[in-house]
Design a protein around this nucleic acid. Sequence first.
DNA 1: TTTTAGCACTCTCGAAGCGAGAGTGCTAAA
DNA 2: TTTAGCACTCTCGCTTCGAGAGTGCTAAAA
Lengths: 352, 352
Amino acid sequence: MQMLADLTERQRFLLNLIVREYTETAQPVGSRNLVEKYHLDLSPATIRNEMAVLTDFGYLRQPHTSAGRIPTEEGYRYFVTHIVYQADLPEAARHTISHQFYQARQDVEQWMPLAASILARHSRAASLVTAPHAERARHKHLELISTQGRQVLMVLVLTGGEVRQQLLTLAEPVTQKRLSEAAAALNLACNGKTTEEIAALPPRADALEKDILTLILADMNRDEQRLSGEIYLDGLTNVLSEPEFLGSDDARRAIRLFEERSLLQNLLMRVMPDSSVGGVQVVIGGEGKWEELKQCSVVLARYGMPGQATGMLGVFGPTRMAYSRTIPTVRFMADLLSGLVSETIAGEENEQ
Amino acid sequence: MQMLADLTERQRFLLNLIVREYTETAQPVGSRNLVEKYHLDLSPATIRNEMAVLTDFGYLRQPHTSAGRIPTEEGYRYFVTHIVYQADLPEAARHTISHQFYQARQDVEQWMPLAASILARHSRAASLVTAPHAERARHKHLELISTQGRQVLMVLVLTGGEVRQQLLTLAEPVTQKRLSEAAAALNLACNGKTTEEIAALPPRADALEKDILTLILADMNRDEQRLSGEIYLDGLTNVLSEPEFLGSDDARRAIRLFEERSLLQNLLMRVMPDSSVGGVQVVIGGEGKWEELKQCSVVLARYGMPGQATGMLGVFGPTRMAYSRTIPTVRFMADLLSGLVSETIAGEENEQ
DNA sequence: TTTTAGCACTCTCGAAGCGAGAGTGCTAAA
DNA sequence: TTTAGCACTCTCGCTTCGAGAGTGCTAAAA
C-alpha cells in the first residue's frame, strides 16, 4: 500500500463523488451505482480499476469483499484538505445568514444561540458556540449589589463588552451604601487596567475593598486558562437520528461529551489550544489521539480578534459528515462573528 | 373488562412486584419467573389466575398470547397512586443529598445544577429544574452599567434574591454618570414596590428614566406569564440508553422537547399551570393529552413558597420508569428546595 | 372455596439453510 | 487505456423449524 500519492484528476473526481455519495446514503458505494446515478461516461469496470487504486492508496476500504467502497479516515482527510477545503458557501446561504444576524444585531445576547442554531441547521449535525472571551481584558466597571443578607452580587464589566457576574457571600452583612462606596473606590483605582496592573497595585487599606479586589483578580484570571463558562449547543437531535449513533456504543458515548460541559471544555482546549483566528480545524474520527471521538468528527474554528477577544464555534457529527456543507458554513460563521466582535471593539475604542 | 375495581391485598402485592420487575428488566414478566425470583409461597398457576384478574381490570396486558405481562398505563397509574405514592426516600439517601446541599449552601448559583444532577442520578433518567421565580416580586435594587456605545446592561434585583439582567440598546450613547443618576432616582422611587405599584406611579419627567422604567415593568411582567428563562437539565444520556429510545421513533422524538427550551416551557406550563406547592404530579405515557409524550412519563413538582417564589423540578423518562425511586426523590428535593427558598425569603424580611 | 398439578396450545426467538443480488477482480479483446 | 465477460464472494432477506417460555383450562386436592 502506497501512501501520500498524488491522485490524477479523475481519481480526485471519483473520490469526491464517493465521499459525497456515502455521506448522503450511509451505504457502501459500488461501481455500477455510481455510473448510473451520475451518468458517468465510463464503464463500471474502469471505475472499479480506479477504485482499486484508491483502495491501494488507503483512501477507500471495503467493509467486506464484494461490498461497495466507503472512505477511510485518510479518504475523508484527503477530501477535506484537497477537494472541499477552499469551497465557499453559496451566495444565497451567505445572504440568508447575514440577514438573520442583521435582524438580531441589537441584541448581543442572541448572537451565540443564533449562531449555534444556524450551524446546526446547515450542517444537520450538532453545533457548539462559545462566547467570545477577552484575552487581555481591561477593567471597565464594577458594581456591587446587595441581594440578601450576606450575599452580594458582583457584576464586572470588562472591555470588549464582556460581563461577568458572581454571587459572593461576605463574612458579615454590609449595607448597600457601603458596597456602593467600595465599588466606587475600586472603580477609580482599577479603571482601564489589566489583570497584571491591578495585581501590582498597593494593597487596599479597607478590608472590604481588599477582599473584593482579591475576588476580582481571581475572576479575571479564572477564564484566561479555562474557557468562558457559557457554551451554546444546538442540534443534538440531528445527530441522534444518524444510524451510527443508533448502532454503535462508541458513538453514543461521544454524546456524553455534550452533556458534561467540563468534558467538552477540556476537549476544546485540547483540540484548539492556541488562539489564532482564521483556519478551520477538522478532526476526523478522533485520528488516534481522541479516544472519545471514535467514529465522530469535529469541525472547529476560532473567531474574534486574536490577542483581544476570541471564541470558538464548530460542528460535531459522525465521521460520515457532510464536510462540503459543514466546512464552508463554519468558516463563514467564524468570519461573520469575527466581524461582529471587531465592530464591537472598534466602537469601544472610539468611545475612549 | 371492569375498571376501577378494588384490588385485594394480594393483587396489589403482585401488581407491585410486576411493575418493579418490569421496570428493572424491561422484559414481560411471567408467572413462574416471578415465583422463583421472589420465593413466593404460591404456585405459578395461582399467580396466573391473579394475573388474569389484573389483566381483566386493565392493569396488565400481554404483548402477545403466551408472553408474560407488562403493566398498562392504568397499571402504572394504580401503582403510583395506591402503592408507591406515600413512600419516603431512605434515610441514607436523604442524608447524602442534604449533605451535598449543605456543602453548596453559600453558592446559590449552584443549587439548580446540583439539584438537576442529583435528580438525574437517583432516578437514572433525565431531570429538569427551573430557577425559583418570584410571583409577587418587589423591586429591590436597579443598576445600570454602560458596557459599550449605546449598550447598557440593566441589572434588576428583586425580593427573593432573584436577579434579572438584560442588555438594552439606547437611542443614543449616555455616560455612566448619567446612568448612575437615573438608576439612583429610580431606586428611590421604586424601592419595595410591586409591579402594580410601580405602574401606578406618575410618569417620570426625565426621558431616560421614563424609558428605563418601561423596560423594568416589561421585564418584571414578562416572567409572570412565562417561566423564568433558565431551565437546568441533566441526565439526558441516561434516557438515551434505554431500549425504548433506541427502538421507537416516538420516544426519540420526545427528546427533542429537551433541546427546544420553548417547547419544554410550553409543556411545563400545560402540565402544571397553577402554582400550588406540595403535590407530585405524574404524567404517564402522555395519558391521551400529550401526544409528544407517548411512551414517556414525567414526574413533576413545584417547590418554593406559594404566592411568593416558586420553581419546578422533575424527571423525564420512559413509561417504564422506576417510579418507586423517582417519586420520593422528586418529593424530597422539592421539599428541600422549598426549605432553602423560604430561608432566603425569611432572611430578607428580617433584614428590613 | 381456593389452590395447584397437568396438559394442550400459542407464540416468539434464534439457528440453519438457501437463493437472489450486488459487487468485486481478473483476463482477454477492442 | 478501456471495456466486456465471467467466475467468485459475501451479505441480506426469507423461510423453516424446533426449543422454550408462557398461557388458559380442567379437574383434583386442600
